[in-house]
Simulated scan of single mutants.
Amino acid sequence: MSFAVDGSVAVITGATRGIGRQIAFRLGRAGARLVVVGRTGSDDPDAVLPGSLPEVVAALGDEGIEARSVQANLTSPDDTSRIVDRTLEWYGGCDILVNNAGYTSNGPIIDVPASRWERAFRVQVVGPLQLCQGLVPGMLERGSGRVLSVSSGSATAISPNLSLYSTSKQAMERWNASMHLELGGRGVAFNVLRVDHIVSTEGWWHVYNTQGAEIATGGAGLETLKTPEYTAECADWMIRQPDGWSGHVVGFDDLTDLGGPEPGPPAVQ
């Protein structure tokens, strides 16, 4: 039996823009009540990119979607605890946890400061684990829940100047395997969506518009570019799979082979 999104409570990190924002809209339109998490508030907007928590909550509300927000930075243990505390205070539990927030600091491995490695592992591994420690016990008690983490094709690639992002995303995938090994089979599924094609998020468009297509695509061209909306559709499909479908790391092409959403036309033509 597929997982019912309607009536569920979904916590989504990195929800002010890009993939996280579209996942919020996708789940909200399906009837989920949302806790959207991000770093950007109305008083401290991003210097380059659009999107803030009040703006996202207002846009969701315009569609009749129930949404509350927690401004939090996953590099902070206290901020991460506040996400759990607010969710339990508002709704008494969480049914869907989407670990979408990401952090990277590109550069030669010998030059990237250790402090940035610590931030990356907080955001990609330790913070999601802390959220699970606070929210998954309730899922297990109820015998139902979903944890979906968003990884990257970088997890399987060795590329110059991407060691921090690659290593931390690979750790996220291994962490998910351990969650499934120890806690799977009890009504809660743990899966990873590996974003192994470039997605046309606001950040990507900024690079495209300021530095050109060659830099934005890494020379790969625009033919396989995916939209955030399609990525959210893939996440939704994975969340809805039956309880026993757990412990998977799935890329876009894998999803198509599994009978998941068909990719639409290229994001940029």
Rank of each mutant, 00 (worst) to 15 (best):
T104E: 12
V48Q: 12
V268C: 04
V5I: 15
N106K: 01
A157W: 09
P265S: 12
H180M: 05
L129C: 05
T227S: 15
L34H: 03
S200K: 12
T80E: 10
G107Y: 04
V36A: 11
K169F: 02
R21Q: 13
W204N: 02
P160A: 14
G18N: 10
L34P: 05
A32W: 07
E66C: 13
Q130C: 02
G185N: 08
E233M: 01
M172V: 02
G31W: 06
A30V: 02
K226L: 08
R33A: 15
V70T: 11
V35K: 13
S154F: 05
A67Q: 12
G244N: 10
Y208C: 04
G7E: 13
I215W: 00
Y230W: 13
G219R: 08
N73V: 01
P108I: 04
L255G: 09
A67L: 12
Q133L: 08
G102P: 01
G102L: 00
Q130D: 14
R142S: 03
L27G: 10
S8W: 11
E89A: 10
H180Q: 10
V250G: 00
A114I: 07
L97E: 09
D253M: 08
L53K: 10
K169V: 03
A47C: 02
A32R: 07
E66H: 13
E233L: 03
E89Y: 01
V195T: 14
V136K: 00
M238Y: 00
V207N: 03
G259M: 09
S144K: 00
T167V: 15
D111N: 10
G127Q: 06
P242W: 07
I215E: 14
G18H: 10
Y91T: 05
M238T: 00
Y230A: 04
M172F: 01
A120M: 00
S69P: 05
F190I: 09
G244R: 12
S178P: 02
I12F: 01
E229F: 03
A30W: 04
D43L: 13
C132W: 01
R82N: 08
L148W: 03
S149N: 10
F25E: 08
I65L: 11
N209W: 01
L181G: 09
R194F: 00
A72I: 14
G153W: 08
A30Y: 01
V150H: 05
T13M: 00
A24P: 04
C132I: 01
D111G: 00
E202N: 08
S154Q: 11
W237G: 03
D254T: 13
Q133H: 07
S168I: 08
D62N: 13
R240W: 04
E182N: 09
Y165M: 10
V48T: 12
S42D: 15
A10K: 12
F3V: 07
Q170C: 13
L131T: 03
S105V: 05
G244E: 15
M172L: 15
I110V: 13
L97D: 09
Q133K: 11
I65W: 09
D95Q: 06
I12G: 02
G38C: 11
I215M: 10
S152D: 06
G18P: 07
D253T: 14
N106D: 14
Y165S: 11
G187S: 10
E141Y: 02
R119E: 14
T75W: 01
